[in-house]
Simulated scan of single mutants.
Amino acid sequence: MSVTIADVRTRDLHDLLATSVPRQFVHKTVESEVLLTGWFPVAPDRFRVTARWPVGHAFYAQVNGHHDPLLIAESVRQTVPLLSHVAYDVPFGHRQTWSTFRYEIDPAALAVTGAAPAEVDMDIVCSDVVRRAGRLSSVRMAVDMRVDGRHLGRVETAFANLAPSVYPRLRGPYADIDEAVRRSLPLAPPMAPGRVARARFADVVVSPTNTALRMQLRVDHSHPVLFDHPVDHAPGMLLLEAARQATHAAAGPRPVIATAMDVAFTQYVEFDAPCWIHAEVAAADSIRVRAEQNGADAFTALVTTTPVPQAALPRIPAQRDRRVR
């Protein structure tokens, strides 16, 4: 059964969400995928939201002694429906759609400092709050993040809120989730995991082509994290992961951290046509990525990279020379 705000009194809801966040409020099916742990209002349109990053997440795992930077994106993504529902009275059944997303962080604050989960604090300021017919229509969020007390950086995002009466008109035939999934293209073979800083083929979201740094998006509906629940289009987190993996492919063998992303979502990515991921080196420390479908750009990202400090790289033990002398 879905939880609705009408099911609990306002005070009870505040007490509940101050200690835990039910999965329905962040639009997740699996409880273990909920990163947020609480929230409370600070002032009009100002909020504190807390999160916890697990030590051994199945997908957003620690690499080279650092937390996965896309935990930043997923944490903020979860605050979008949470604050929509609890702070701006958006009913369940409405959909929140990203238009822009950017972050810039200090990579040193991503360094793993212990064996316990990381405690995350997000101070959020909402602006440009637009309402139509008394309902939230769109809003911008600025987020200052700290991890285990260390300042991590800043995130800015903007999203629209779409009512159930609006979304089908916007999406047309693609609004039918079952039909959209049925028309999905066959899953393309994955790129070698090592090229995109992944350990498992199942977690690779791009497929190689005959053109260097031109990849095809892999849409694997069975992925337990990126497709936690059925959707009618490629999720935003899948596109961010494709941008991150394309960045690693373009950066070459040197280990890097995506320390900044500046992203624009311009149209939905559908399941029934190839989506091409293009990557190009924009500068010594940045990669430009775009997702193209049906001849139009659906998503663009400028990703800034920072080399992983040598001290953080795993040491490969020296091998004894076993040649016969």
Rank of each mutant, 00 (worst) to 15 (best):
M237F: 13
T19N: 14
T100I: 12
F265W: 09
T300Q: 11
R169I: 13
D148K: 10
H223P: 06
A298N: 11
T29I: 07
W53A: 00
D144N: 10
N294G: 11
A199N: 12
F59T: 04
C275P: 00
F159L: 01
H94P: 01
F59H: 01
S32H: 07
A160W: 06
L170I: 13
L82Q: 03
T306P: 03
D89N: 12
A163G: 14
A260L: 08
R95M: 05
N64F: 05
V231S: 01
S138G: 14
V63P: 00
P117W: 03
Q267D: 15
R52D: 09
F265C: 01
Q96P: 03
D262Q: 08
V269W: 03
F299C: 05
R154C: 02
G114R: 04
A51S: 05
P44C: 11
S84H: 11
G236W: 00
G172A: 12
E156F: 09
H233S: 10
P69C: 11
A58C: 13
I177F: 11
F92P: 02
R95I: 08
V63F: 09
I124L: 14
R323Q: 13
P189T: 00
Q96D: 09
P91L: 02
T157G: 07
T211M: 11
R183N: 08
S138P: 02
H221C: 00
V26I: 06
D15Q: 15
V143S: 02
T211L: 12
V204D: 01
I105W: 03
R288L: 12
Q319A: 15
A249E: 03
G149E: 07
P309H: 06
Q319C: 12
A258Q: 07
A282N: 07
R325I: 12
Q310I: 11
R150L: 03
Q293Y: 10
R154E: 01
R150P: 09
Y103G: 02
A311H: 14
D7I: 13
V49G: 04
V26S: 01
V3E: 06
P255G: 10
Q24G: 04
A160R: 07
A234V: 05
V155Q: 01
E292T: 05
A312Y: 05
H248C: 11
L71A: 01
S2W: 09
T304P: 05
A111N: 04
